[in-house]
Design a protein around this nucleic acid. Sequence first.
DNA 1: CTGAAAGCGCTTACAG
DNA 2: CTGAAAGCGCTTACAG
Lengths: 354, 354
Amino acid sequence: MIKNEKYTIRDIAELSGVSSGTVDRVIHGRGEVSEKTREKILGIVKELGYEPNILARSLALKKIYKIALLLPKSSKANPYWLQPVEGAKKAEKEVKSFGIEVIKYFYDFTDEKTFINEANKLLELKPDGIIFSPFFYNESLEFIDKCEKLGIQYILIDSKIKNANYLSFIGQDPYQSGLLAGKLMCQLVSDDSKVLIITISKKVGNSNNLNYRVKGFTDFIKSAYNKKNISLQNLQIPDSNSPKDIFYGNQFIMPDHVNGIFIPNSRAFLVADYLIKKKLLDIHLIGYDIIKRNVIHLEQGTIDYLIGQLSEDQGYRAVMTFFNYFLLQKEVVKDLYMPINIIARENVRYYLDK
Amino acid sequence: MIKNEKYTIRDIAELSGVSSGTVDRVIHGRGEVSEKTREKILGIVKELGYEPNILARSLALKKIYKIALLLPKSSKANPYWLQPVEGAKKAEKEVKSFGIEVIKYFYDFTDEKTFINEANKLLELKPDGIIFSPFFYNESLEFIDKCEKLGIQYILIDSKIKNANYLSFIGQDPYQSGLLAGKLMCQLVSDDSKVLIITISKKVGNSNNLNYRVKGFTDFIKSAYNKKNISLQNLQIPDSNSPKDIFYGNQFIMPDHVNGIFIPNSRAFLVADYLIKKKLLDIHLIGYDIIKRNVIHLEQGTIDYLIGQLSEDQGYRAVMTFFNYFLLQKEVVKDLYMPINIIARENVRYYLDK
DNA sequence: CTGAAAGCGCTTACAG
DNA sequence: CTGAAAGCGCTTACAG
C-alpha cells in the first residue's frame, strides 16, 4: 500500500487486520492489547512512517492543557515583566485552538510571602505545566519540590536554578552579558578612566543574575583585552532605602573623575536622570533592558548602550515549548540561551513592540 | 444562550433557526442566502463573538496551500541563503498539519536567466503564495507583474521594492544598519584615523541594500557625532574580477595608514584572511552576516563586529505570515523590520543555530 | 482483548 | 434559497 497522501489510522487498521480503536490503543500504550497484535501494528506504523494527524486528535480529544504563569507583578517602576506576559499571550492565541490555556499569577517582587501565596493558589488549579521565574531562591526551591512531587512539569524563565529538574530553562547567560558590557565600556572610555559599578536594587530576591553580570563585567575590565588601564569602583545602594529617593533627593554624591558607569539591572534610567540633573553628561552609561524610561535616555544619548533581550520571546517560547511537548510530543531543548542584544540609539526601534 | 465554552456553528444555527450549512454559507460569503436570514445570522455571530474552530475547518477542508520559495542557491562561498530556507522549513513543520506546504526553487545569483527560469517554473505550479527576494531588480519587477496579474500574493524578504503591492516585506533597514556600523567604527578607531569602505561583490544583482549600507555608514562618519576627524576612502572591487583571486593572489594592495575597514556585505572574511596574511592585525574590521567564515574571524579577533540578523527568522516569519493570512485570516504587518543585531565575540554563540 | 459506533466542529455535494 | 447527510482523522465509552 503506497499512498501519496499521509497514512491514516484507518490505513494502519486495515493493513493490520484490526479496527482503528485497537490501533489507537497501541499508539498510546493504553494496554489491553495482545502482544502479538501490538507488535504487528507497531511494525506497520514504523514501516509506513505513520504520523497521527494532530488536528484530528485535538478535535476529538477536547483536552485543555492548563499552563500556569507565575511572574513578578509589573508596574510603572518595573515594567520589565510585562513583556514575557505579552509573549505568553501571543503564543496562547496561536495555539489556543489546540487546547492550550494560560492562566496568570502575579506576585510582589519585594515580598516573598506573596510569591508563596500565589504559588499555592496556582497549585490548587492543578495545572498541566508551570512557567515561572525563580526570583526568590529559597522559596523557589520549595515550590519546585512541590511541583516535582505532584509530577507537574515546569519551565524556568529569566534565571536558572542549577540541578533542578526543569523541563526547560529560557534566558540569557548573565556572566557572558557582563563580559560584553565590559567590552563596550572599554571602547567608550579613554585611557586611565575610572568606571563605577552601581548596584541599585530595592530587593533583589535571591536572584544571582545581578552578581554574575557584575562578575562578567569586572572580569572583562581586568582581562588582557583592556589595554586602557581602567580602574573600577563598586557602589552598592543598600536594600533598605528606596533607590528612587537616593537619586532624586540629594543623598547620592557622585565620586570624582568618573568616566563610565555600569548598572547591572534595568534601573539605569535613575542614574541617567541624576546625570542630567547634575549636568554630568560626559559620563558613559551602560545598563540593561529595553524599557521605556531607559529607551528615552538611549535616544537622548545619556545612556550609551543597553544590554537587552527579546524578553517577550521568553514568554512566547515557554508556552510554545509546552505546546510542542504536550501536543506534538517533540523533544525539548533543555537550556535555551537567548541572544544577548546590544542596543544603541541606532537600532533600538527594531527591538520595540514585537 | 450563554456558554462557558466557545460557541459552535451549531449554536449559531439553532439560535438563527436555520441549519449549519446556511450559517457556513453566510460566514464565507458564498451567497445563495436571502438577505433577511443573512442579516439575522450575522447579528447573532457578532453578538456571541463566534469564532470558527480552525482545527475543524482545516480537517474538513483538506485544502493544501502551496507556498513557493524562490531564493539564491547557497554555496560554501555564499552560505547566507541557507538560513531563511531553514527557517521556512521549521515553520512548515509547525503548520504542515493545517495544510501549508512549501516548495523550494533556487537560482544562481550570478545569472539573471536562472532567476527567470525558476520563476517561470514556479508559476506553472500555480502556488497560493510566493516568498522571494528581489535580488535582480528588473527581473523582479517583471515577475511581480506576473504575480499580480495572476492574483498571487507575494512576500518580499531581505530587500524591498518600493511601491510594489507585496503582502509583506520582511527584512532589515540597510541604511540604519550602516549608521550603526559607523557608530561602532567611530568607537573602535582613534582620532584622525583613516577608514576604508571596501565593496566586494562578484555581482550584486541590482539590489540596493549595499548602497544604502554604505550611505548610512558614510553619513554617520560625516555627522556631528564623530568628533574624531575620521577620513573615508572608498574602494570598489570591480564586478568583472573574482574577489577571491584579488585577495588571495597579490593583486590587492592595502593603502597606507588604514585603521579601520567596513565591508557592507558578508565577504568580510576575505579581507580578514588578507589582513592575517599581511600581518595587518591592528586594523579594525566591521562586516555583515553571521556566516561560519566570518564567525571564525570574529572569535579570533580579526573581525571586531558583525552586523547580523536572525535571517532564519525571515524565512520562518514569511511562512507564518501566509499561515496567519490564509488560515487565520489575521491582518498582516506590511513592513516588518527585523532587529539589527550587533555581534561581537562575546555574544556570537547565542545567534548561531537557532 | 477487540470492534462498532458516536462524536469533536466544520464543509460540501446533493436534493429539493 | 435551504436542509440533511456524509466526511475529514482521531478518540472513547460501551458492548461483547
